[in-house]
């Protein structure tokens, strides 16, 4: 798939572009954090300590008004008191309303985002690429039918469709054992990791069309290439030609599209979690939604995971730019779907 020439182009573009280096570094960082989350997180991200709720991040110690109630002759009286809240090095990014460590949650959130992004993209590609290749290769009615159904899919904004499907089908969650914890390397960390199953399926289903469109375009073009014609005239079966010639030569644009799609799906996942259409509590979007209630009193709960999303998506987008500039498949702008 990756010819020496391609690799040379990649290297040249990488050397030339500072942004490409930044992108690769950011993505590497996020992947590293996601993979080794149990070893990196200072606390169990789900462990609560109600007494340590809403601690500010380092450098933001201050006073806070706390309100509670008292019963006076059977009526409820509201009591305000001013308390000092001190940031601690134990929770460098502060804690949320349940006293969970924000840094650990941000670290574990990377897992959810990346896994949903990668698995969702994979699913979209697995569905979309074969459909697109076949349509472009066979043409005729099959192609017309595909293009119209792709148009129908596109007429539903992916977020709207995803909300509808998750909302209507439920938020199935799959618990996967965490290998580090099973191996005893990360004592005290959650034993399982929750994958939002419905969300993965749904983001894959709402995004396959982009892959189908790109794959079809490639198949249409490659179909008339001399070597494809030659293969066919030598009696190669259509499935063989598709697998052996058309697919490998479509790989570059599909790879670039996949990169853009991972970014789009990370954003889509965060939007779904923000709206409560997810299946896990360890997600950046979920934390942003939780923090929404505390904007005026604990701004960091929404802010920290938001910054994490932005950095991750910037990284993936820069990576995508690098691939596109180096490989130039000419599909810029497609595969959209930012949330």
């Amino acid at each position: 798939m990756l010819s020496p020439r391609t690799l040379r182009n990649l290297k040249r573009e990488f050397d030339r572009s500072a942004l490409a280096k930044v992108g690769v570094a950011l993505v590497a960082l996020v992947v590293f954090v996601a993979v080794f989350a149990p070893l990196l997180a200072p606390h169990d991200p789900t462990a609560q300590s109600l007494d340590d709720k809403r601690l500010p991040p380092l450098g933001f110690s201050g006073t806070e008004n706390q309100t509670t109630t008292e019963r006076v002759n059977g009526t409820v009286q509201v009591v305000n008191e001013t308390v000092t809240v001190n940031a601690t090095a134990d929770h460098p990014l502060g804690t949320n309303a349940l006293g969970q460590d924000m840094l650990s949650r941000v670290i574990y959130g990377a897992r959810t985002s990346l896994l949903v992004g990668l698995l969702g993209t994979l699913l979209a590609a697995v569905v979309g690429v074969p459909v697109g290749l076949v349509a472009g290769y066979v043409r005729g009615r099959v192609d017309d039918a595909l293009m119209r159904s792709a148009d129908v899919m596109l007429a539903f904004p992916s977020l709207v469709l995803a909300i509808a499907l998750v909302g209507l089908w439920g938020r199935a969650a799959i618990r996967v054992p965490d290998p580090f914890v099973v191996a005893g390397l990360a004592p005290g960390m959650p034993r399982t990791f929750t994958l939002p199953g419905t969300v993965i399926v749904v983001v894959g289903l709402v995004n396959w069309v982009w892959f189908a469109r790109v794959a079809r375009g490639e198949a249409l073009a490659l179909r008339d290439e001399e070597y494809v014609k030659a293969a066919r005239s030598l009696g190669a079966s259509d499935p063989f030609v598709l697998r052996r010639h058309v697919l490998p030569n479509s790989a570059t644009p599909i790879l670039v599209l996949a990169t853009i799609q991972v970014a789009a799906i990370v954003l889509l996942e965060s939007a779904l979690s923000y709206l409560g259409f997810s299946g896990t509590e360890l997600s950046w979007g979920f934390d942003i939604a939780q923090g929404r209630d505390y904007l005026a009193t604990a701004w960091w709960i929404s802010t920290m995971p938001g910054i994490a999303i932005v950095l991750t998506v910037i990284g993936i987008n820069l990576l995508g730019d690098w691939l596109r500039d180096a490989l130039d498949p000419g599909i810029e702008g497609e595969g959209g779907g930012g949330a």
Partner: peptide, 18 residues
């Protein structure tokens, strides 16, 4: 433009409100 395409708009909205 890089920030713009990488920021979830609901989060941007929340920050603008904040």
């Amino acid at each position: 433009s890089l920030l713009g395409i990488s920021t979830p708009n609901f989060w941007l909205g929340i920050m603008l409100v904040l």
